[in-house]
Design a binder for these strands. Structure first.
Length: 745
DNA sequence: ACCTCAAACATTTTT
DNA sequence: TGTTTGAGGT
């Protein structure tokens, strides 16, 4: 009963709730993970079998953490049958078990976002469509959006509004692309991330026995980060929980920040409609942050209308006030941050790992990096391209994927001419077209290349050689483990030679990455003796960088976007770039719901801090080669002044003048002068000038994202000329003409 | 098949 | 501004 003693009364109630639907509203820093793990321990203590428990999380890391904590209290053999993992990994597991029911092989492989984009690209090319109208990224996103709302290419026909939108955007062939995309995935025995959810839902809808089987199996369902579930996830959960209704969802509506990828706060707000007899527990005590930080966060979030009422409080110390600083440029901001880190390290026993710098967009990291390097402060940037998405890694993994599933077309396309073996783009294109015509897989065409008259002798021989190479690896993979087969692949294909001989800095880093992959593989192979290659391929497809995180070992300052920081905590947090058009983001300004999401994002940022919080904004930001005039974010004015302090920076070199939040007029005059000086430079650029002048009130325009619209009015002149446009599909938006890239119709 | 250079593009991200 | 993409040359 040790685990119960560590809980407060509300946590205890939530943990001890055994039967029936329940929702835990867990404020930031309220011990959410502890409640989840304690609840699982409590279930096990009450003789509920491990194989009857399903626990869903959003990241592998969260799942791993929970499992570790549970294994501290229980012997492994009592917990090993808990189904604990991400939505995607759990559903992939179900789909592999039930593959025969949905006409898929068990060994299907998974397309990541890049593979999907390449597939869309090749479909568009194959259909001879204009890639200016059918932008691969846009099409992929739309397909993903539809799948996440349970709209298949078949049911798309029933959604007239969606078709209308495509018609307006002149994407009349969208439905056909979608359909081809679906059938190509099917024919290559591959699924994209969205399929893992969509196919699971279809499986549960179409196979009553299977549904009963899993409804019965999962007597207790726990879901973490419920506010981030999207529609299809909601549908699946609802189906699975429908029989026992022992569903426990944990989340915080105030931390819902993923609506741009389909998460809907509705799922948490409407929980009561699906489970009228539910119980709510509110975890309102914050164990993480000082009083100042908690109350400042409360003062921000209360500006949101759509939320569940709660009162987050803490017994922690008052703490230091939040320091808000205004600077002139992003460069100064970076210096301010790095100097402050240095300063705190001198005054206290803080280490690099106790600091985090959070920003709205990845692009902001550059100047911060520079300043940290200058000050010799070790840092680590999160985000950007993850390990498994690096070209050199994906190329090797593509060989692995082919060995697991020869129909995996995107994998085959990656390796057929890598390393270069004289099978050029033309030959590959011919192979693909032929495969499409014959409605067969690329690999089948390669296997039967002898009977096909499309190629000359040389090309044919090279293709046959490639085929023999793959067949050799296939043979070898029967006797070698994952580590050994990958070793064989990189030696035999020449990838090893190729990468070790590249002595450029990038080449060396690529070689190191390959080494790291091999190290990981060796460890994996030792732990998974059976079928290790296919298991490795399956697992790796759903793994991300954040899962192998090693911040604490490396003792460096953390740089990341606010999104990436969710769930983490640091003693000292810097939130930089608190400016209108940046945080809140420009694209969110016209829409109240989007602004509320940005506010939640700011709330998440604030609540990462345990002891000290620093917020800064600049009046000029260098962006895309130009200085942009900025004003303080509205969010700064929303923090109750009781908890903040507008402070003069210590470094005289940085701050010759007193720079305070509210010195709006005097400060800005100075800045406007510098801005004006730069103006002629922009105006002398003919292209820029013409582009801006041609837009008049009443002009019909087209925007890349918002589609067609009409300019209602114009504001300001010169570089900052803005247009208020009424879009047919997206309503009224205010856009900076310089960035909007509007097309005159 | 490889290189070079200019144009285009760039806004949050997990699986 | 930096990076990526693709066109055009060899």
């Amino acid at each position: 009963m040790d685990y119960l003693n560590k809980l407060n009364s509300e946590q205890k109630k939530a943990v001890q709730h055994l039967e029936g639907p329940m929702m835990v509203i867990a404020g930031a820093g309220s011990g959410k993970t502890r409640v989840l793990t304690s609840r699982i321990i409590h279930l096990l203590n009450n003789n509920i079998h491990d194989h009857n428990i399903l626990s869903l999380t959003f990241t592998n890391k969260a799942a791993k953490e929970m499992r570790e904590r549970i294994n501290n209290s229980f012997a492994r053999d009592k917990t090993k049958n808990i189904w604990m993992g991400t939505f995607h990994s759990i559903f992939a597991r179900i789909l592999r078990l039930e593959a025969h029911q949905i006409n898929y092989p068990t060994n299907f492989t998974i397309y990541d976002t890049e593979d999907c984009k390449n597939l869309v690209k090749s479909i568009i090319k194959d259909k001879n469509l204009d890639k200016e109208i059918y932008k691969p990224n846009l099409i992929r996103n739309r397909i993903s959006f539809l799948k996440n709302n349970f709209i298949t290419s078949e049911s798309y026909k029933e959604h007239l509004d969606l078709q209308e939108a495509d018609k307006i955007a002149k994407r009349t062939q969208f439905a056909s692309i979608y359909k081809t995309y679906e059938s190509k995935c099917k024919n290559s025995s591959t699924m994209d991330f969205d399929d893992l959810l969509l196919r699971t839902y279809e499986l549960l809808c179409n196979n009553k026995d299977t549904l009963f089987k899993y409804q019965n199996k999962f007597k207790y369902i726990l879901i973490d980060e419920y506010q981030d579930t999207n529609h299809i996830q909601y549908l699946i959960i609802k189906k699975l929980a429908d029989f026992h209704k022992n569903i426990c969802v944990v989340g915080d509506d105030a931390q819902s920040i993923y609506s741009f990828r389909g998460a809907t706060i509705k799922n948490i707000l409407n929980f009561k409609l699906d489970y009228p007899k539910f119980t709510t527990y509110k975890l309102e005590q914050n164990y993480r942050s000082s009083k100042n930080i908690v109350q400042a966060a409360n003062s921000i979030i209360k500006h949101n209308e759509r939320q569940i009422q709660k009162n987050i409080w803490t017994e922690n110390n008052e703490g230091e006030k939040i320091i808000i600083t205004k600077v002139n440029t992003d460069k100064e901001e970076s210096l301010l941050v790095s100097n402050t880190i240095k300063h705190i390290k001198q005054l206290t026993d803080a280490h690099n790992k106790d600091f985090a710098i959070l920003y709205r967009t990845n692009a902001q990291s550059r100047s911060l990096e520079e300043a940290l390097r200058k000050n010799n402060i070790a840092y680590k940037i999160y985000g950007g391209i993850s390990f498994y998405q690096r070209k050199e890694i994906k190329d090797i993994l593509a060989y692995c994927r082919i060995l697991v599933n020869q129909k995996d077309e995107e994998a085959l396309k990656r390796i057929i001419n890598y390393p270069a073996r004289g099978i050029g783009i033309n030959s590959i294109q011919k192979l693909i077209s032929y495969a499409n015509e014959q409605n067969t897989s690329l690999w089948d065409v390669i296997c039967n290349i002898d009977g096909i008259k499309l190629f000359n002798k040389g090309t044919k021989n090279r293709i046959i050689k490639f085929k023999q190479l793959i067949i050799y690896f296939l043979e070898q993979s029967k006797i070698l483990n994952a580590f050994e087969i990958v070793n064989e692949i990189i030696k035999k294909t020449g990838i090893y030679e190729l990468s070790i001989s590249d002595k450029t800095p990038e080449g060396i880093s690529r070689f190191e990455n390959i080494q790291e992959l091999l190290n990981g593989l060796q460890e994996f192979s030792e732990n998974n003796l059976l079928n290790s290659l296919s298991e490795f391929v399956n697992e790796v497809a759903l793994i991300t960088d954040q899962d192998n995180d090693n911040t604490n070992i490396r003792n460096s300052v953390t740089l990341m976007t606010v999104h990436a920081a969710k769930g983490l905590e640091f003693h000292n947090v810097f939130i930089v770039g608190l400016e209108e058009n940046l945080f809140p983001s420009m694209l969110s300004l016209q829409n109240k719901q989007d602004i509320e999401e940005e506010r939640r994002l700011f709330y998440v940022a604030i609540t990462r801090a345990e002891k000290r919080l620093f917020i800064s904004f600049t009046s000029n930001r260098f962006k895309w080669g130009q200085f942009i005039n900025c004003e303080a974010s509205r969010f700064i004015y929303e923090i109750d002044e009781k908890y903040t302090e507008k402070k003069e920076a210590k470094n005289k070199e940085l701050f010759q003048k007193n720079i305070y939040l509210k010195t709006k007029n005097s400060e800005n005059k100075q800045i406007n002068k510098t801005k004006l000086k730069r103006l002629p430079k922009f105006l002398s650029s003919k292209k820029e000038n013409n582009n801006l002048i041609k837009f008049k009130v009443g002009s019909k325009v087209k925007h890349i994202k918002f589609g067609e619209g009409e300019i209602i009015s114009l504001e300001e002149d010169g570089v900052n000329k803005k247009a208020i446009i009424s879009f047919k599909m997206f309503g009224i938006k205010k856009l900076l003409l310089r960035f909007a890239k509007l097309q005159l119709l």
